[in-house]
Design a protein around this nucleic acid. Structure first.
Lengths: 131, 131
DNA sequence: ATGATTGCAAATGATTTGCATCATA
DNA sequence: TATGATGCAAATCATTTGCAATCAT
């Protein structure tokens, strides 16, 4: 799909650096950190500043184009192009992060009606056997 | 229960500062951050250093006496005296964090047998209506 | 030229580390 | 007195901010 249009529809001016960041985050990367984005940019768009990387990622989050995720094992934020409701599996050996859609994982709660639940985030942590 | 004994059984020398930190974290506090512990200590044990607070909390985590938790809305670590399997509700207005035991929240997954799941962490985010 | 965007460097916040001092077995 | 614990300050890591230079409209 057309990234330029997506940005424009969100009211974000599609500058060269923003488009390049989006190409990576939306089409190529898998749950990158800001630092992953910066490293990739260093090789594909010389001279972007780290500030621009953060500014752009935060813009994308504010406009719902990506989601930010904080995982239990690491204080850093990772960015997820999948903005629908879903959960995650984290491989504790490799750090690999796999999206789990709601059909693969269900969360059921019995909280009283005074709890107004807006969001559910589950993380399964373990190992994926190579076979 | 006897905190001094608990530390000794874990092989941790029960110094005055450690005992005082434990009294707060294990008996009084509710999901405190390192900074919460430091503030409380400032009023109950003048002159503890922040380093000692962190060292002690990390010791407690290493010995399984408390659990560390990283929540989605905030990069800081919070410490949980409840070390059994349980989940959390986070009030997005107040920041209040409530433990949910497994009878209140169930996570079911249909992942292939190549996934060896060791840990499940669910966070429900929303509001608790005051009534 | 006007306002938005960028890059740089300095600031911030959380946590860790190095090291000299201190307490206690 | 030897080992380990503490306090302090400096270091580190992730992220944010201020501001001047630059770009696009």
């Amino acid at each position: 799909m057309d990234i330029e249009r997506r940005l424009q529809e969100a009211g974000i001016k599609p500058t060269a650096q923003r488009l390049t960041i989006c190409r990576y985050v939306l089409e190529e990367a898998n749950h990158p950190t800001a630092d992953d984005v910066k490293s990739w940019m260093d090789q594909n768009f010389p001279k972007v500043s780290l500030a621009t990387v953060y500014n752009t990622l935060n813009l994308l989050v504010e406009h719902g184009i990506v989601q930010e995720l904080r995982l239990p094992h690491d204080g850093r934020v990772v960015f997820d192009m999948n903005t629908g409701p879903h959960h995650h599996f984290l491989d504790e050996d490799t750090g690999e992060l796999v999206d789990l859609d709601p059909s693969q994982l269900k969360v059921e709660h019995r909280l009283g009606s005074e709890f107004d639940i807006r969001q559910v985030q589950a993380v399964l942590i373990g190992r994926k056997k190579k076979r």
